[in-house]
């Protein structure tokens, strides 16, 4: 087996006596698209927030490229090469599309304390290059607040790619998008993953997206990992069908 991008062991977290995540372990390899699915409240978001440093786990370890990240802040984890997109897009609404990407570049190059040059003129070519990769370069100068939702998701992707990450954490990357946009965005992500040999961990409620793009699927239920397998095996797993997929799986997955 090749080296792991991410190695999670025994991750646990409880809130006020409620065990949100219980002894979760899994690993992720370069070039792999790993989906994390499960009912609402199963602990997906908690898991995610522990990986990116927003929450501190009660116990367990998160090894990122063989480096322990438990206890590090989100900003530090980002510097280790982790890009992130959010379920509800988080972009800077008072800036243009290009400036959004420039912010990430400015941060990457440690220029945030600079008081001399105008920010909108710094690293503009690099930012445009990233926007070109995600296919919205023609909207570079529009205010982010006026963008269509699907395009905002692409801005987020460009921002997440700005520091050449080796791992992307995507929280419901296609939530709120039209079906066609979903397919396009995931195809784009898959291309970028291949090209840059990235790893991706994503949560998702759209089973079409999950079964079409994930190399492997993790299923969480009530804080416990109940499956870690190929899409085919997960689809046929009776426990997963009972707690999550329901009886119409076939129709959903193959429609």
């Amino acid at each position: 087996m090749s080296e792991t991008s991410l190695q999670i062991t025994g991750l646990s977290k409880s809130f006020g006596g409620v065990q949100a995540v219980m002894d979760v372990s899994f690993s992720l390899h370069p070039g792999e698209l790993l989906a994390l699915i499960g009912p609402n409240g199963a602990g997906k978001t908690t898991c995610f927030n522990m990986l990116n440093g927003q929450l501190k786990p009660d116990s367990g370890s998160v090894m990122l490229f063989s480096k322990e990240t438990v206890g590090l802040k989100p900003a530090d984890i980002w510097r280790l090469g982790v890009g992130r997109t959010f379920q509800i897009t988080a972009t800077y609404s008072s800036m243009t599309v290009c400036e959004n990407v420039q912010m990430a570049l400015l941060s990457d190059r440690q220029q945030l304390m600079s008081f001399t040059r105008r920010a909108s003129r710094m690293y503009r070519p690099e930012a445009l290059e990233l926007l070109k990769q995600v296919g919205i370069v023609e909207q570079e100068d529009r205010p982010c607040s006026t963008l269509a939702y699907g395009d905002l998701k692409r801005v987020e992707l460009a921002v997440a790619l700005a520091n050449n990450p080796r791992l992307l954490l995507m929280d419901e990357p296609t939530a709120g998008m039209a079906p066609k946009e979903r397919v396009e965005l995931m195809a784009l992500t898959a291309d970028i993953v291949k090209e840059r040999n990235l790893s991706v961990l994503f949560t998702e409620h759209d089973m079409d997206v999950v079964f079409a793009h994930a190399d492997r699927i993790l299923v969480l239920n009530r804080g416990k990992l109940i499956a870690d397998d190929t899409p085919e095996n997960v689809r046929n797993n009776p426990e997963v069908r009972m707690v999550y997929l329901g009886t119409e799986t076939e129709e959903i997955a193959h429609a």
Partner: peptide, 16 residues
């Protein structure tokens, strides 16, 4: 301004 617009996004691109 970035921090004002979105604190989570700012954290996730390394802004303290």
């Amino acid at each position: 301004r970035a921090v004002r617009d979105s604190a989570v996004r700012s954290e996730s691109i390394g802004i303290r």
